[in-house]
Amino acid sequence: MKFIACTEGHSSKIEAFSLEMIAAARSLAQAGDEVVAFFVGRDAEGASASFGAADRLIVARATRSDVIPAETYALLLRDVITAESPGLVLVPYSANGLDVAADIATRTGWPLVSYVNEIKRRGESLTVVAQMYGGKILAECEVPLPAVLMINPGAFAEAMPGPIAAVSVQTIDAEPALTGGKVKMVAIDVPDYADVDLTTAERIVCVGRGIGDEASIDLARNLATMLGAEIAGSRPVVDNGWLPKLRQVGKSGQKVKPKLYLALGVSGAPEHLEGMSQADLIIAVNTDPKAPIFNVAHYGATCDLFDLVANLSDRLRAGSGR
C-alpha cells in the first residue's frame, strides 16, 4: 500500500508538522509499503533536504508564488492520487489542510476523518481516534480504505529530518496549475512585532471566554502588569474584538513558550493548547473542572476567576509594598 504524506512550507521554512505526517505514515507502513511525501512550493531544496524519512518525494515546484492557494495544492494532489493510487492520504490540520482534506475527499469519494490523534491499521481498514467538541470527546472511528485523514499537529513525533536521495525525488511544475487557478494570492502580511511579541514574552496572562466581557479584561490586564506579564487572549476573546490579533495565542495566533502562563477562563480547545502547551509553568483557572486546559496545567483551580484575580492582585500589591 502507498501512503501519501502531505507536507507544507513557505518563506523558506518547512513546516514541522510535515515531518509528523511522514512519521504517521511510517508508523503504519509494513514491508512492501511505500511512504510518498508530497510537497508544493518554492522551497524544493528544503523539502529534498528534510524528507529523507520518506521513500519517495514528489515536489510540485512553484517559482513565483510563495504561498500556494489550497485550491492549487488540492488540484496537484489530485493528479498525484490518480497516478499513485494510494491507500491513505495524510493531510495536516493546517490553514491549507482544512481546505485540501474535504476537497480531496469529495473528488475521490473517499472517507475522511479530521482532527485525528491516533491511527491503528486493521487489515483493509483503519481505526482512528479523533477529537470532537473542542477536545471534550474522543471519537473512535472505523475508516474503510482508501481514505483521507486530517491529522492534528503534535499527535505524532516528527520524523528525523534528513536529505532524500536525488533518485527518489520526482519534480513536477506547479506553475501551470497556479496560473490557471481560480484563486490568486495577491498579498502576504507578516505582523509587525514592534508593539508586542508574545513568542518572546517570559510571562503571559491569557484570558478566555470565561472573562465574560470587554470591561473585565482590564482586571486581568492590571494583574498582568503586577506580574510583569503580557496580556493575551484565546480566539473567542480576539474574535470579539476585546484584544488585538497580535495578542492571540493558539493555532491561528501565536505559539508561545513562556516561563509563566496564567490562563483565566480559557477552556483549552485543541487549537489553543497547540499554541501554549510547551510553557514552563501553566496555571489554569476555570470553573469547569472538565475543561481540557487542566490536562496540560501544572496547577489548576476551579474558583471564580474574578475572585481569584481580586485576591491575587491584593496579595501582589501588598507584597510589593504598594
Binding site: K136, P144, V285, K290, A310
Partner: peptide, 27 residues
C-alpha cells in the same frame, strides 16, 4: 464514509496539582 464506533471522554491527564475552588486559598 468513516463511522463512529465509540465515543469516550478523554482521560483527565491531570498530572498537575488541583489547588481547589477557594479563591483565597488558591491565591
Amino acid at each position: 464514509s468513516a463511522e463512529i464506533i465509540t465515543l469516550r471522554l478523554p482521560v483527565q491527564g491531570g498530572s498537575g496539582e488541583n489547588l481547589g475552588g477557594n479563591a483565597e486559598t488558591v491565591a
